[in-house]
Design a protein around this nucleic acid. Structure first.
Lengths: 229, 229
DNA sequence: CCTACCGATCGGTAGG
DNA sequence: CCTACCGATCGGTAGG
């Protein structure tokens, strides 16, 4: 789930109909208000991680950012507008992240392993995505479009990765890149849920690496500088 | 996630400290009250699937079962007691299910594929588990113990399955049964979340079968009567 | 950005 | 099993 913006694609639309109009996107030359808004978005992300979007109260988010809940609604006209801002920020952060480039013999898919390693050190991000993804399962949920989009992008990225390996003749002949891609994304998500529930019992990268290596031909298992983390 | 009771183990404890004492477990010779309680548990499972446990209101659950919310609290003394009853019922149903036995060349792990195929025809079950598992991530959540237990059992079952294959010499030499088991359970969970979000884009069994087959030696891929579903 | 308020809904209890 | 109620909390608005 915490694979948003993975491709560095331009954050397109993000929330479907949802609009962040109003005070929220003023000239932004007013440093103070900008700061408050950033604090609100950060606080919201944290609270969503703790109790989900549905369970989050504007009063709790506002309190953590040091304003009243009516003050929050001055900056973001509705609960949904704040959610949109949180998701936009996540995509922006992910897209701008320069790390995740350590070559590791797994081709583009190495980025996914590196992302998992990064997430392991940022529990809050994982909590945010695991909770939101479960809520957004419903077609009526305000983040539903965001997640269908997110899954599609993640799948396409993984599929490209497997195709690249196939082009190099490194993929086992029976491996279907599309099926392998769906599985890889699902594996990442499932590992995150299990890891949050019981961090000692599971780690995020081992099973992932194992999965990718199973799809490679025997001679390609050396997997380069694997333990670079 | 919807792998509860997979092993047919005696439902042990279930909810940690949580107790279902009180009126809820009377002699049970009173058919009418028994019926009402069953209706309440079924309604609760449905509402949890829609909006999660945290988001579910006793009034909505009671209405679906045809009683008032105070009537519900007569049968189940608290919101948590009702949750315990829902989880107990799920384990009982799973343990008693006689299907899931079609041999398919995958050994014990074939049961997991059969379970996924079954879940594909019972969206409500999957919704219930995906939502609860995300909420139960927090150590404070009343279902947390249930899920740590559930994950542990599921992992052990899968690990046994991989060991059985290894004993038959059917496992590829590089495959670690424990790592493969963690991955298989995670894969099931992640597929379920993706499938709920976008049912047309993903199916529950293909990626699962693919994963298991990747761990087998070349000569074992025929996978027996695969499309028996 | 705040104070003050609105109607709605929540889990749970009293008392039959 | 119900009616009737409790205190708490919710998202959002009015009006500055």
């Amino acid at each position: 789930m915490a694979t948003a913006g993975l491709l560095g694609l331009p954050p397109r639309g993000i929330m479907g109909e949802m609009s962040t109009e109003s005070a929220a996107d003023r000239p932004a030359g007013y440093a103070r208000g900008r700061r408050t808004r950033d604090d609100l978005v950060a606080a919201a992300a944290a609270v969503y991680g703790d109790v989900g979007f549905d369970g989050a109260s504007l009063r709790e988010i506002a309190k953590r950012a040091g304003v009243t809940h009516a003050g929050l609604l001055y900056h973001f006209p509705s609960k949904e507008a704040l959610l949109a801002a949180v998701l936009e920020r996540r995509d922006k952060i992910d897209a701008e992240r320069p790390d995740l480039h350590l070559p590791n013999g797994l081709g583009p898919l190495g980025r996914l392993v590196a992302l998992a390693a990064h997430n392991e050190r940022h529990r809050g991000i994982v909590e945010l995505y695991v909770r939101l993804a479960a809520e957004a399962t419903s077609e009526m949920h305000p983040a539903h479009i965001y997640f269908t989009d997110h899954y599609r992008q993640a799948r396409e990225f993984a599929e490209e990765g497997f195709r690249a390996l196939a082009a190099q003749g490194r993929l086992r002949p029976r491996v279907d890149p599309q099926v392998a891609a769906i599985g890889l994304i699902a594996l990442m998500d499932g590992l995150q849920a299990q890891w949050l529930t019981e961090p000692e019992a599971v780690d995020l990268t081992t099973a992932l690496r194992h999965y990718i290596e199973q799809t490679l031909t025997e001679t390609n298992h050396a997997s380069g500088p694997a333990k670079k983390t």
